[in-house]
Nucleic acid binder design. Structure first.
Lengths: 210, 210
DNA sequence: GTCTATACAAGGATAGAC
DNA sequence: GTCTATCCTTGTATAGAC
């Protein structure tokens, strides 16, 4: 019984994408060689170039996969919902994402630090639209007197920065804390701290603040 | 009258360091060539290698200059001072630093994202000591009932992440905001927002909350 | 002290065997 | 569809002229 070619292709592609993500994080785009990626994926170098016709191409594929995963986790929020509950869930979700996919967060961060040459378009269209929508909802909550009068954009930026920090600055946080990795207690503590401080900071109370 | 050799050396070194910082930010360590740096510094390539004997050496020099500037701006805080005032000043200071030296923040961030291979030692010694000291002061404030019971380490991380974000993610923030650069109004608004939310979030009020 | 010319290595990409 | 061998560019670093 012949194995379908499509399956091999798919499996190899995924192996390469995972390996590439790990290597790009450690050494940057230029610092990563196709040989590194091939070795990590346990495939010959030419094979990697066979699936993704160029290094640049492979890098963009890695970025796209990350952006897709990122966007898929952007929960919808409606002004009819309770702001404390919505923001609480959003923050906890972002922390989970950061801890679960640190490499994704790191590559995304590196790309933006370098001026976002491959993400400018995504930000000008998709992200800006998403942000405007959320801003509108938060402004509605403020108008309804449900929370303090703060700049909605800044609030979103604060949530992004404070949550992603645990992925991007992992090396710093673990080193000064003298730890090898985050354990589940750490993660819960991070979530509680951020929810407590940010929600209280904008005049909200977490839903079940146990 | 002969120009002192030391002056030329110093001036060229500074020009090279500035050029290197700008290039390393845009393309990363491996992605930056000595030719790029030499062109940006308006000097021949061999001249750059004459002053800093290797590329790695030059990169470490850039990092050291950054770490030094960073550390010199770590204000002292004492438990006898008013926590609201101290944290307010610290946050405003960090925002100024981020806006004034975005490249420094970006290179530092990139280095940590990649696992801090050249900063591990600095973090294990200098930074950890600094953090422990601040933690002690914040714990004293909490014990004195002057602020909410929060994890002091997390509070420091929150201040670092939220302030540095405006430097590191400049490209994202400016793009979604449809701006070319931060103006002085933006900077003041950022400071007010962060001080307001973070201080209130830990049970403090800014000193002169105008 | 400054710069030109060059040795030498690494890596991306392709041609073509299997 | 998969992989070996190779071409060619780029880039670090040095030797040595001025």
């Amino acid at each position: 019984m012949k194995v379908k070619t499509g399956r091999i292709r798919e499996q190899n592609s995924l192996k390469i994408l995972a390996a590439a993500e790990a290597e790009f994080v450690k050494h940057g785009f230029k610092g990563t060689s196709m040989q590194n990626i091939a070795d990590a994926a346990e495939l010959p170098k030419a094979n990697v170039l066979y699936y993704f016709s160029s290094k640049k191409n492979l890098y963009v594929a890695v970025l796209s996969a990350i952006a897709e995963r990122w966007d898929s986790n952007l929960d919808d929020m409606h002004e009819s919902q309770d702001p404390g509950e919505v923001l609480n869930n959003y923050i906890r979700n972002k922390v989970d994402l950061a801890i679960q996919y640190p490499n994704a967060s790191k590559i995304y961060a590196t790309e933006i630090i370098q001026g976002a040459p491959n993400l400018k378009e995504h930000m000008r269209t998709g992200l800006r639209t998403w942000l405007r929508e959320k801003t509108r909802v938060i402004e509605a909550w403020i108008a309804q007197g449900k929370m303090d009068r703060v700049d909605p954009n800044q609030l979103i930026f604060l949530i992004w920065s404070s949550t992603q920090h645990y992925a991007d600055f992992e090396a710093q946080i673990l080193t000064v804390s003298n730890k090898q990795e985050y354990d589940s207690d750490d993660v819960e503590q991070i979530k509680r701290f951020l929810c407590q401080v940010i929600l209280k900071g904008v005049g909200l109370t977490p839903p079940g603040n146990a």
